[in-house]
Nucleic acid binder design. Sequence first.
RNA 1: GGUUCCUUCGUCUAACGGUUAGGACGGGAGAUUCUCAGUCUCUAAAUAGGGGUUCGAUUCCCCUAGGAACUACCA
Length: 486
Amino acid sequence: MEFRVRYAPSPTGFQHIGGVRTALFNYFAAKSNGGSFILRVEDTDRERYSTAYLDDLYQTLTWLGISWDEGPIKGGPCGPYIQSERLEIYQKYAKQLVDEGKAYYCYCSPERLEEVRKKQEESKSEYQGYDRHCRSLTEEERAEYERQGIKPVIRLKVPTEGKTTFHDIIMGDITRKNKDVSPDPVLLKSDGYPTYHLANVVDDHLMGITHIMRAQEWIPSGPLHILLYQAFGWEPPVYCHLPMVMGKDGKKLSKRHGSTSVKDFRDKGYLPETIINYVTLVGWALDGEREIFSKEDLEKCFKIENIHKAPGVFDYKKLDWFNGYYIRQKSDEELAQLIKPYLESAGFKADEEKLISLAHAAKERMKTLSDIVSLSSFLFEDVPVADKSLYVAKGSDDEKTLSALKRGSEIFISSLERGEAEEKIEEALLELSKELEIKVNGVFQPLRVAITNSQISLPLFDSVRLLGMDETKRRIKRAISFLEEK
RNA sequence: GGUUCCUUCGUCUAACGGUUAGGACGGGAGAUUCUCAGUCUCUAAAUAGGGGUUCGAUUCCCCUAGGAACUACCA
């Protein structure tokens, strides 16, 4: 049997970590099983829908390099893959259930439903949900409502007796008493749009989905979906409920935990490799040892059996570590292209050659691509350090610092102009430090602060190379006269 | 409240019922280099609690505790 899975997001928000993780698991399961990955847009919530979110969905998947075998834009044999373009299908199937006595029209107003809900809350009733008022309407009552022009919804007749069980590959059997299943949920809304439950079941069946991999938050509606499959007389697919991604406090990951949309991470300068690798590792492991996986690796070795049961906490620190790792893996040329837009948006301009040597110097110091801005700002803005004590290294003093800067810069600059090797210059500066009876850093620090306007910087030789000799000399001269001031 | 699910270092996780319970991030210590990073070495850190089953339980069963999700004409 062919292995067919789908990712079926609702464009009611930007793609977030949880959603993307579901997409990734589906995609990798499809690839490693030689199956198909289908993308389906569940845009039945017209209130929250926005094309910006739909664009974000396509952009995010494209950025990650996740392509779909069937779906919007690309097409396929089971299209259309956008639910708002399939309305007649759902309406037809909903009517079919009504005709067969498995569903019914409901004319209750939102106000009445609200009232029912309020009463249940007040009476602290065990029973929650719709009171099935319209389930037993007579033909006359129905005709009367129709005459009033009330647009009905269609609700499923959920059995009140018995229980429903479904099997989940990672969770095992999950059983729920029918009386505890959502009481007669809406299948078709009064605006003619289907609800998630109807559209989902109908499409999964029509599109030949064999495995449903979705977040564990859907477990409670599992039995309901089984009941729907039974009502239609269809064979349900295999279920696989994925553990959820949580924030530090153990609650469902949300904005208050920090960035959660992939767009945010992309903007900050996280690489797609990072997102793919780390996100897959929340709730999945190959053998517990290996942790570095490329997309291509996962397309081969991802196994559904290795998915964990328990929810996992999203660790921003570990994400940073992965990002730093993948940045270090880039060639200088690749990294130069990646940092370019960040410099540009900071108003920093650099030619290709400079970008490459900047990438080289900064590579090991970056956690995100946006770090390049603070790392390189000394090249583009000149804000001298105005606190003399910051020029003084540990174990040195004002006087020694000044002479270290004067004599050190002389050695430094003349050697550089003679084109001497870095090691030789370092040696010469080491000599000077011995003579002044301070540590090497007592010589390097004043130079560093003078040249890079900061105590923390890229390596000095790299900094000078990037800055240029003229500017370097100017800044040193300025620092010397600043330190000479009383 | 009701229903369902979950439980190994702080976090992500590994361990056909038999291991000194392993790895990674983060933490701590040290080495290296001009600072910061990076790299290398070392280190602390866990089977939620209680009962069973078994020669032997992280692993199987039960109870307790804790946590989570769901409970819409949202998905």
